[in-house]
Simulated scan of single mutants.
Amino acid sequence: MSDFIVIGGGIAGISAAARLSDLGSVTVLEAEEALGYHASGRSAAMFEENYGNPATVALNKASAEYHRTANGGYLTPRGFMLVAGPGEEEQFTADVKELDLHPIAVEDAYARVPILKPETVTLAALHEEAQDLDTDRMIQDFARVVRGAGGKVVTKAEVTAIRHTGAGWQVTAGGEVYAAKQLVNAAGAWVDRIAALAGVDPIGIVPKRRSMARLPAPGGHDVTSWPMMMGVGEGWYAKPDAGKLLVSPADADPVDPHDAFADDMVLAEGLARYEEKVTEPVTRVESNWAGLRSFVPDGALVLGPDPARPDFIWCAAQGGYGFQTAPAASRLIADLIGGRPSELDRDILAALSPERLR
């Protein structure tokens, strides 16, 4: 019997498992054949401290030092730039305030991204400190911690049954039965289905699709040093990636949990919004995909023991902020289970607690 079973091998589950390895033996169960298959494998891979609601931003800030220094650091310079045009002044002002950006001269924006269209980009703001995240290495490093502590990481282990026993939990997955004293639900879009199998009340998770297209470098430009760009109201965003450009319509359409794929019409509409701001038309999409970002109604993560079943621990509702928040979120999970004080203040802890949803 393990001390902990963690269901879900995305960044939420594998980071929680690594932190819990200090408290006891851990078994990670992942339904797919590899870690980080769903939302974690389809991330925009950015660290933007000011992105998210107050509880998310607090986790971002508490994660910053880990991102900068752990295992040699996971960050490389990128920058984040908001662009707007005629008629978008009010939304631009609101976004600048919410994201804590500083306005820059449009000439500076054109210098940074030479394909911006002067007729439709008349305002710009920047956060120079936004950075790329090495997401794959982060997942593998957390998995290495689990294995180094004697824990198990089991893939192709879809959970089909959960039973509470006098000693803890029995979980049937991939045809095998696993036992542990405590159960961590980090199953992403599937967390409420896992809760139902365990006889625990759901938290009202809503998976929302986020689509992405990979384009050739526009006009043959070297995009390596371009910042990530976003339209006002998060109507679209674009990010350099391995010499290409990733463009998303920033869609957030509620869907059932599944292996997500991009909706062609939604993708086309988002690409059209991007095209309005640039001089280079989209002539070819090299590939496209989608991931599921999972939310509860208030938009904050759900972290900690269930109030009615304390040996069932939620690590859920990352909402697209999973990598940004993982170091602090996983530390909070371990602190709560280990009875240690948290570095986060009381209001933030309340905003993240499962108790707020009961």
Rank of each mutant, 00 (worst) to 15 (best):
E158A: 15
E158C: 09
E158L: 12
V159K: 02
V159A: 09
V159N: 02
T160P: 09
T160D: 11
A161R: 15
A161N: 15
A161S: 14
A161K: 15
I162W: 05
I162G: 11
R163H: 12
R163D: 11
R163T: 15
T165H: 04
G166Y: 04
A167Q: 13
G168S: 06
G168R: 08
W169N: 14
W169A: 11
W169Q: 13
W169H: 12
Q170F: 00
Q170H: 11
Q170A: 15
Q170C: 07
V171K: 01
V171N: 05
V171E: 10
T172W: 02
T172M: 14
G174S: 06
G175N: 02
G175C: 01
E176V: 03
E176F: 03
V177W: 00
V177T: 15
Y178P: 11
Y178M: 07
Y178R: 01
A179W: 00
A179K: 15
K181F: 00
K181R: 15
K181M: 05
K181T: 14
L183V: 04
L183W: 05
L183I: 02
V184F: 10
V184T: 08
V184E: 10
V184R: 05
N185G: 01
A186D: 06
A186M: 06
A186H: 07
G188N: 03
G188A: 00
W190G: 02
W190Y: 13
V191H: 00
V191K: 01
R193M: 09
I194A: 02
A195M: 04
A195K: 02
A196G: 06
A196E: 14
L197D: 09
A198R: 03
A198Y: 00
A198I: 07
A198V: 10
V200N: 05
V200M: 06
V200A: 06
V200S: 10
D201P: 09
D201Y: 05
P202T: 11
P202S: 00
I203D: 12
I203C: 02
I203P: 04
G204M: 06
G204C: 13
G204H: 12
I205Q: 12
V206I: 13
P207W: 05
P207V: 14
K208Y: 00
K208V: 07
R209T: 13
R209C: 07
R210D: 04
R210I: 10
A213V: 10
R214W: 11
R214C: 08
L215H: 09
P216C: 09
P216G: 08
A217E: 11
A217L: 13
A217D: 08
A217N: 14
P218G: 12
P218H: 08
G219E: 08
G219K: 13
G219A: 08
G219S: 06
G219H: 06
G220F: 09
G220H: 11
H221F: 10
H221L: 12
D222N: 15
V223M: 10
V223S: 12
T224W: 07
S225W: 03
W226T: 12
W226P: 14
M229T: 13
M230D: 03
G231K: 01
V232S: 01
V232F: 01
W236E: 03
W236S: 02
Y237I: 08
Y237N: 06
